[in-house]
Design a protein around this nucleic acid. Structure first.
Lengths: 303, 303
DNA sequence: TGTGCATGTTCGAATTATCTGAAGTTGTTG
DNA sequence: CAACAACTTCAGATAATTCGAACATGCACA
């Protein structure tokens, strides 16, 4: 069995530097000095690099040796971290939890739960992945995410999923104060609306055309990168369209957006939490139990 | 000599996965299957973790085993890169130079320099690797590339890098008013900061895994879908990190975010040439001196 | 249901890697 | 110049790893 760099060799270099000599390293590692010498010479042979200048009484690291020592410490730390986190994964904690949340919701809904989760001190990285309405189930099914907050209740695919009703979300047709439609007579007709560009949020879900839900045909569109941009576009008067009412409550109150009644109103949508029934990760389980009981989302939907 | 994780054991895991069986790994590594079995059992014993489910006919990785395999590959790559770059430090001319360039730039920018370099007649292979804006630093840090032309400054990791500035945008290290770092003594040290989760904006245009509990980094991460979510996360006090100053000017003025001085301030964001400072390769140095004086890139940016 | 095949394990023996102990070399210091 | 310390050399001992042969088990197929 042959390898150039070994974890043990890096440990030896580290001990030599910290103790100042081969003899000091030998003491720390419970070996004899010739074993240290053997390990260093083997490493130099395998790398084909001189690591110590032995012209003097004491061996001194060469630039290459010092480089290997320094970078090798990073590798040593990484190896220890890997052992530790592997043990934690073995105990049930998955290394990463990807939460897909509906872009209609603001990410702030998740923050109290995430804060509490981090306080547990377990080595799980949490990743918030924005998914549009239609793409949530697809993301869960294809395992781009482990948990969905804000899935719709219509396009649930076949498979072993568990879901939980979070609440309903209402939509408002909104325009900027200076937009011609702001002073138009209500309720707005399709004719009124189709004369202006519709602001559309791009759908991040794969292989789905840009969202048509709530848009009238034959109407020009201005596609935004995400829901925040859609809101900005409508505030700027560049486009009109439906927006989730809780997201723009403050903008409506301050007059930066104007709510208009339309002839064909958009029905509220039901939002679900969803997961694969069989997934057993401890972090997933923790978030599921927490978020299905969390009033923050229900409160936000109702405001 | 005793250690939990060895480079050789990780190599064995890697071969088992790639070849699909212990027997396949044995063939690839020129060993007999019982030697593979011995190595795996030794690793399991040293870690005190079951890595393979042997209830079936074929051994199947457990979640902990899969985790170790995945992260272990990072360690394997790092060890190989360390051997390579140590030789580079020792020898001067590195055998290979990998140049990552920003996909916004055309590769033609590099051609005059590469042509002149080949005319030198030195035995160095040059490799051009296309990287997206945010992925450039990751490529450099993980040593998939040795030199970056066109790096951004948003995702620059901590570490010893050299860069050459082409244009400017200022960034601010920001925390929420109620965050512990808000009242911490300035300038903040890396130690101060690494005790709190870092808010990281995921790069959606490239299939890079979002920031994970990297075995090389000790700081926890919370990955946001985009820069807006990163701002929200930091406003909520869930994470800390760098934000583009013009984007948060109003939040700073209104007190929703607090600007903190840090020991290692972030350079302005623009297209940069970037490299590891300690890398001493002669080819790297040659290209660095050549490309940082080359008007071709600056001319292209100004047109 | 029985057979053949493939995968992985067990275990004794062999091989290889790493270590120890003793002696030697070299540089520094008093 | 002698004493001391650091590191090297080298033969032999010990430990780790490998091999080879036999065994156990699961799967596919007739």
């Amino acid at each position: 069995m042959h390898t150039a760099i070994t974890i043990d060799a890096l440990r030896v270099l580290d001990a030599i530097d910290r103790k100042g000599s081969f003899a000091g390293a030998a003491g720390e590692l419970f070996r004899v000095p010739s074993a240290i010498s053997y390990t260093v010479q083997k490493l130099e042979e395998d790398l084909n690099v001189v690591l110590f200048d032995r012209s003097g009484h004491r061996a001194v690291l060469t630039p290459a040796g010092r480089y290997l020592l320094k970078e090798g410490r990073t590798l040593l730390d990484a190896a220890e971290n890997l052992a530790h986190s592997t043990r934690q994964v073995a105990q049930g904690w998955e290394p990463r939890l990807r939460i897909g949340f509906n872009s209609l919701l603001p990410a702030e809904c998740l923050f109290p739960a995430i804060k509490d989760f981090f306080a547990l001190g377990v080595p799980v990285d949490v990743q918030i992945i924005e998914e549009v309405f239609a793409g949530a189930w697809d993301a869960l099914q294809s395992r781009r995410v482990d948990l969905i907050i804000g899935a719709d209740d219509i396009s649930k695919p076949s498979g072993n999923f568990t879901s939980h009703v979070l609440g309903n979300i209402t939509f408002t047709f909104a325009v900027a104060p200076g937009h011609p439609l702001a002073s138009a007579k209500e309720p707005l007709t399709e004719e009124d609306i189709s004369g202006f560009p519709a602001a559309v949020a791009a759908d991040t879900s794969r292989a789905l055309p840009a969202g048509h839900a709530g848009i009238f045909r034959r109407q020009r569109t201005l596609t935004a990168a995400n829901i925040d941009h859609k809101i900005s576009i409508q505030k700027a008067g560049l486009g009109v369209g439906w927006l989730p009412k809780p997201r723009i409550q403050e903008l409506l109150a301050s007059g930066q957006l104007i709510e208009k009644q339309v002839c064909e109103p958009r029905q509220p949508a039901t939002l679900l939490a969803a997961r694969h029934t069989d997934d057993k990760g401890k972090a997933l389980t923790w978030f599921w139990q927490r978020l299905t009981k969390d009033p923050a989302i229900a409160n936000w939907l109702n405001n």
